[in-house]
Write a protein that binds this DNA or RNA. Structure first.
Lengths: 241, 241
DNA sequence: GCGCATTTGCGTACGATGTGCGCTATGGTA
DNA sequence: TACCATAGCGCACATCGTACGCAAATGCGC
């Protein structure tokens, strides 16, 4: 009985896991994290779950990412990378350019609702390259539109704050619905009675809820967004006249 | 050796914890939660820690609060309760009234920075009484200012989105500084070199950072907030003809 | 081709977390 | 006095982030 013939604790029985996958890379980890977050929400992202989606152990990820917070920073910037950089419009077109950026920023947040919560935790302290690129570009649009560098900065902050504020509210709603596992219709219908009861003592809120009953929520969100965006841009435009 | 003289496992050694404190109440729990959150940030709130601050076990809290999320809902509404309800201004004064609400909303968020993260998670789905009261009041200001009920709703959403957007960014920064255990000065000085390196390839961002160097951050945050607020209100005012 | 140094993956383990369950004591009511 | 609803709590469980150290794999200088 040489050790070669021992079937159990032998070289041949040893795991022999060669690296089939071309290993693990930071980009791959971040991309999979974004996918997981989109599919299952922010609470579903644990290092173990992410690891097993990549056929890897949980702690393997730490070779490429310092910790979970850093992973989120990277994921946020990855999403920022989806934003198109609209071509620099001429002086007449600053407003159209900003509108376009505002709309695609909102759309991106709604496509990845978890990002709202993360931006709420970290704000603008992220220094990710995609975010910086986008910021630089926005400043450029305002400056070529006629704003001084200082005011371009303030104008940009105003628009971005507005868009993030609106989109955060919408995204939070989407996240809650997704977490509930129901359709948007079901969820709204389950919440509605409680909401109506809660606003009973407030005439204006009652009227508001009554008016919204049966309306398509997504459509009126969109309308509200556009209304506010136009007001913000009106206010900025009047500074140029 | 009668069992009376046994000092260890006897009736007298038994804990004998009478209820000195008038027990535990939901209000008390929420108030202490807000205090803990203010002092130590959102990560420091665990049911065990909150319990021990109230001389109670962790699971005792569950008699008064369904779960941790509900506790946060209550805490958020508790903070909303701090907002003053400004007296309803006349038709000429809608703008001043909104300004006042906007400023106190921002101030409240900065006093309780953790609330920004929570609002980012839940948005406007909170139906807390204080939040409802405040919303009703805001709608009233816009309506008496001359906005139709529908447009008052949109106008309010716009202002609130802007204020939340700005304040969320500021609050996130404050939370990060607090978590780092450093003073704001120290923290900024530690971050600055990395930031300057990151923006090197972007001329406008580089100029912006250069201009901000040495400025008082809180003061320029305040200026930015006021700038944007005035633009938003300008845009709304122009709708009144 | 070979030997060594560095990098990568992972098994194990630790402390902390949210919370379900069932026991016990308390205080009010009949 | 007997009873019962309720508040508080100890215990337990599953899950989490992540520190540590070993083993395989890879890259590098010869």
């Amino acid at each position: 009985m040489s050790s070669n013939e021992q079937p159990i604790p032998s070289v041949w029985a040893r795991p022999r896991r060669e690296r089939e996958q071309p290993a693990l890379s930071r980009d791959q980890i971040v991309a999979e994290a974004v996918r997981l977050l989109d599919e299952e929400g922010v609470d579903a992202l644990s290092m173990r779950r992410l690891g097993s989606r990549l056929n890897a152990g949980a702690t393997s990820l730490y070779r490429h990412v310092a910790n979970k917070d850093e992973l989120f920073e990277l994921a946020v910037d990855e999403v920022y990378g989806e934003l198109p950089l609209p071509e620099q419009a001429g002086a007449a077109g600053w407003r159209a350019g900003i509108e376009q950026v505002a709309r695609s920023l909102r759309a991106t947040i709604l496509r990845h609702p978890w990002i709202a919560a993360k931006l709420g935790e970290v704000g603008l302290a992220y220094l990710g390259p995609n975010m910086l690129r986008q910021t630089e570009h926005l400043l450029g649009i305002f400056e070529t539109g006629g704003f001084s560098p200082e005011e371009a900065d303030q104008a940009m902050n105003t628009v971005v704050a507005y868009v993030l504020g609106v989109s955060t509210g919408e995204a939070a709603m989407l996240s809650m619905i997704a977490r509930s596992g129901q359709t948007e219709q079901e969820w709204l219908e389950r919440l509605w009675p409680a909401a109506e009861r809660a606003v009973q003592d407030y005439p204006r809120l009652r009227a508001r809820y009554a008016a919204q009953r049966g309306q398509d929520a997504r459509e009126s969100d969109q309308d509200n967004f556009e209304y506010g965006l136009q007001r913000v841009l009106d206010g900025l435009q009047s500074r140029l006249g």
